[in-house]
């Protein structure tokens, strides 16, 4: 099949970009979307032009590196699918395909389709950790965890941090991402000691990064390649409320000598 691509080209973070039209001839329906771009890029390189820059790593839908908007929908709009797992058989000969990077102040475009998602890393660093005793390895199964809770924790932990939730949110909110990280630890006993401070810290960091605000629209859940539900956002909201309510005034701590 032959496609017409409209791709966002941007030299670097400081230079304004624009949409550029490319022909993608002889696209094989068995290619993934990224492989189709690889072939287009080979053509560009042969012509002496700059190839289209996009992020990718595992190409198995599990690493979270790839992702951009395809025809106005994050990852192209197929359920639980990253762009590397999206195959060209879903397109038809003659289709016009619009390809744009995630757009958010917190995700500056570095080059073409690559955005800087280190804001996510800073949200994780602000509270997405647990305290553990170091030393010898703990006994397996020494800590009983209810099956339903471990399942919910695993579901939330499936987040690969691709950024599609921010990209598809009309408010450019990071509530699904932050909610997934908070909910993941909130369901486990290991996450309890820091649970309250975690929700306060991570929400405040999310705000400091200038992500927008969740208005419960649900576009994030629909485009999340890991199918994470907005229930995790409610979980974050509940933790934040409880933690804000229970936050105690600072007191002088009597040290042990």
């Amino acid at each position: 099949m032959n496609l017409t691509l409209h791709v966002w080209r941007q030299k670097d973070v400081a230079t304004p970009g624009k949409m550029v039209r490319y022909d993608a001839p002889n696209v094989n329906e068995h290619m993934s979307f990224l492989e189709m771009l690889d072939v287009v890029n080979e053509g560009l390189i042969l012509r002496g032009e700059e190839p289209i820059a996009f992020e990718h790593d595992c190409r198995e839908g599990i690493c979270g590196s790839c992702g951009f908007m395809i025809n106005g929908i994050a990852h192209g709009g197929f359920k639980n699918t990253t762009v590397c797992q999206l195959h060209m058989r879903h397109f038809a000969d003659g289709d016009e395909v619009y390809i744009e990077p995630w757009r958010a102040t917190a995700f500056p475009v570095m080059k073409d389709l690559i955005v800087d998602r280190s804001a996510f890393d800073r949200i994780i660093a602000s509270g997405g950790y647990v305290s553990v005793s170091t030393g010898s390895a703990p006994d397996g199964n020494a800590l009983p965890i209810r099956k339903q809770d471990s399942d919910l924790a695993m579901d939330a932990a499936a987040c690969i941090g691709c950024g599609a939730c921010v990209a598809s949110c009309p408010n450019a909110a990071a509530a699904l991402f932050t909610g997934a990280k908070i909910s993941h630890l909130a369901h486990l006993p290991q996450g309890q000691p820091e649970r309250k401070e975690r929700s306060l810290r991570m929400v405040r960091q999310m705000n400091a990064e200038l992500f927008g605000n969740c208005t419960n629209i649900g576009e994030c859940e629909a485009t999340c390649p890991k199918g994470i539900p907005i229930e995790v956002i409610a979980s974050m909201n509940g933790d934040f409320l409880a933690a804000s309510w229970q936050e105690r005034p600072p007191v002088e701590i009597a040290g042990a000598g």
Partner: peptide, 8 residues
């Protein structure tokens, strides 16, 4: 340039 709502 192009944004399409899905389920909202």
């Amino acid at each position: 340039v192009k944004k399409v709502p899905t389920t909202s």
